[in-house]
């Protein structure tokens, strides 16, 4: 009987570069899957205002921004938005455009805040800014679609209040999520990815 190794080329230890790439892809895949689970859960939760979601998926995005760097966080964030739209059957629809634009601006705001404002702001502040940016951009797009700015004046206070509640909640969850994962809490992931 032939042993499994017979007839196969002897493979030495994987080059460091390949191993790091695999680690990075595994991290992105696992985090995207987790974000998608949170995204689906978020969609199923009842909402006091139908067009404002809690933003549970943002918990993972913020944790990755802090603990793994913006490249990994961006990959996971935009993959989740796209796959989430495919799952809902709404890719390239107006809803997708709203979701994508809000998600993109929110990500940029949080990435800049993590890079430049983190000693001054904590998880709560960064998460609130992300939620506010997300909801404000969506509201601006609705106002542009209606060609009427009065909708901004009427709904922005609600956006502020709900961004405060939901952004604060996401920030709190993200902080505890980071604390429970040593690779994120100690910056090992960010360090390894930067070295790679």
């Amino acid at each position: 009987m032939q042993s499994p190794a017979e007839g196969m080329a002897v493979v030495g230890p994987e080059p460091r570069e390949v191993r790091e790439r695999i680690e990075r892809l595994s991290l992105i895949a696992a985090a995207t899957a987790f974000e998608l689970v949170l995204f689906v859960l978020d969609s199923a939760l009842p909402r006091p205002i139908p067009w404002i979601k809690i933003g549970l998926a943002n918990i993972v995005t913020l944790a990755l921004l802090v603990g793994a760097g913006w490249r990994v966080a961006a990959a996971v964030h935009f993959l989740r938005i796209t796959i989430g739209a495919v799952l809902r059957g709404g890719l390239f629809t107006p809803f997708f455009l709203l979701s994508f634009s809000g998600g993109a601006v929110s990500f940029i705001v949080m990435a800049l805040a993590v890079r430049w404002a983190i000693p001054v702001l904590g998880f709560l502040g960064v998460s609130f800014l992300g939620a506010l940016a997300h909801n404000t951009v969506q509201l601006l797009m609705v106002a542009a679609a209606l060609s009427d700015s009065s909708v901004l004046v009427l709904l922005w206070p609600a956006v502020l209040l709900f961004s405060l509640c939901y952004g604060g909640f996401s920030g709190w969850c993200s902080f505890h999520f980071c604390r429970r994962i040593p690779q994120l809490a100690e910056g090992r992931l960010a360090q390894a990815l930067r070295a790679g």
């Binding site: 604390r179 100690e186 910056g187």
Partner: peptide
């Protein structure tokens, strides 16, 4: 690795802003 520090949950600026 030693330089990395997990940011706090909230700072004074956060509370003022919120």
């Amino acid at each position: 690795r030693a330089e990395f520090q997990l940011p706090p949950l909230a700072t004074a600026t956060d509370w003022v802003m919120l």
